[in-house]
Amino acid sequence: MKEQTKPNLLVLIGPTAVGKTKMSIELAKTFGCEIISGDSMQVYRGMDIGTAKISKDEMDGIPHHLIDIHEPDYPYSVAEFQEQSGRLITDITNRGRLPFIVGGTGLYIESVCYGFQFSETGADEDFRQEQFKYAEVHGAEALHHKLEEVDPQSATRLHPNDLRRVVRALEVFHLTGSPLSAQLASQKKESPYHLCLVGLTMDRQMLYNRIEERIDLMLHQGLVEEVTKLMDKGYAPGLVSMQGLGYKEIVSYLQGAYSYEEAVELLKRDTRRFAKRQLSWFRHMKDIEWVDVTDSQNFSANYEKIHGIIAGKFLSNLEYTSKQSK
């Protein structure tokens, strides 16, 4: 049958701090996976603490791809992620392994799952530079307000500090007269893969508590020192990478715009808001099997639920399920 000719693709998504990393390693061991990072920030070398990048020890021997592939001044894009992921999925499948995307960058992951087309809209470099200048003079919030007026859906999805993507959304509207959100909504949403999409969710307050605990841990691990080192190497605050959560706020503290306490509070608030936007993005995606992991202490029960979903989806591929005999 036609469906069976499509390569299998396992995907685990969810908001930041929900517990994707630990779950993904256990699933990868069971189903013979290689993991493709679906996080737009973990591609950058030297940005480890603020991105909650998985360590070699945590990988536990599972191959991981698209981590530490660029320097922080590289303008990584969704189109590049899509192209690289497509090649990796083919390579991993050809090796008899199961490709497994794990992450929280919604547009990146959805673009791979459904083969989005990105090549039709051109560029207007003058317009782009005008928008960056506008943000410099009036602030990121003012530029974000311009996006709200022409494309409220994209404005809801994008953080004001994500200048590159805010400018790109404005540029798409400027060039086509059509909002980026409408163009994304019109994508065919037909997957080139035999997909198993699993989403992790949990009680909102518990998630927010976990986010705050994670940020406290990042600070304890040396987030301020990590950002200082990046700045000392000459990576400018305006870079896309340095606008990421955990970096922009600490840069502002180091430059004297905020006290340490204010920067930490801002980081916690912005990360909570980011998690909310992640969930709203994932909620509009189809085909996701949601698993509530609020009872995070009961890891084995949550794992069994997800194992059952994957085994059910890929049942005809017995090599993936035979490894779990218990």
Rank of each mutant, 00 (worst) to 15 (best):
S77C: 09
L158T: 07
Q84W: 06
R269A: 12
C196Q: 07
M23A: 09
A263D: 00
C33R: 10
K233T: 04
R277G: 03
L175H: 06
D151S: 05
G86L: 04
S296T: 13
A169H: 09
D57C: 05
A182Q: 10
F127S: 04
Y320R: 11
F299V: 14
L180R: 07
F116H: 15
C196H: 03
I309A: 13
Q84A: 11
E190W: 02
H138Y: 06
S259H: 03
S85V: 02
T294Q: 08
E304W: 09
Y253P: 10
T321A: 13
S280L: 09
M242G: 09
E226D: 01
Y114M: 06
L88I: 00
I309Q: 11
A155Q: 05
G177Y: 05
R168V: 08
K326T: 14
L170D: 04
L217S: 10
P237C: 05
E120G: 13
K305S: 12
G38E: 00
N302C: 10
Q153I: 15
R164I: 13
D151P: 07
Q324W: 10
S154D: 07
P7Q: 04
T228G: 08
E34L: 12
M202A: 15
H145L: 11
R87D: 12
L245Y: 09
K326C: 11
K53R: 07
R157M: 14
T51G: 05
M202N: 09
D216Y: 02
T90L: 10
Y247L: 15
Q131V: 04
S325A: 12
F81I: 02
K313F: 04
F100T: 05
G86T: 10
G106V: 08
G238A: 13
I215T: 05
K276G: 12
E212P: 08
A169M: 08
L147A: 09
L143H: 01
L98V: 04
Q42E: 02
Q221K: 15
R273W: 01
L266S: 11
R273M: 07
L267K: 08
G244I: 03
K29E: 10
K268M: 01
G246K: 07
Y134E: 02
T51P: 06
I35T: 02
L200G: 05
S322N: 09
T228H: 10
R272D: 02
E136T: 12
H174M: 05
Q187E: 14
K305E: 13
A169F: 09
I69Y: 00
T5L: 15
E125P: 11
Y208A: 08
I13G: 10
I109P: 03
T51N: 13
A257V: 11
M285Y: 04
K323S: 14
S40Y: 00
L197G: 01
K233I: 01
Q131K: 15
K133C: 10
F118H: 15
L267I: 06
H194N: 13
E171G: 08
A301D: 15
P7T: 03
L158F: 14
N298P: 13
A140F: 09
A185N: 05
E141K: 12
P99R: 01
P179M: 06
D60E: 12
D270E: 14
E225Y: 03
G61S: 01
V227I: 13
S252G: 13
P237K: 05
D73C: 10
Y74D: 00
A135E: 01
L200T: 06
G256E: 01
P152S: 06
A135T: 02
M47F: 03
A155F: 06
L266C: 10
E26V: 08
A169K: 08
K326H: 11
S111M: 03
G50K: 02
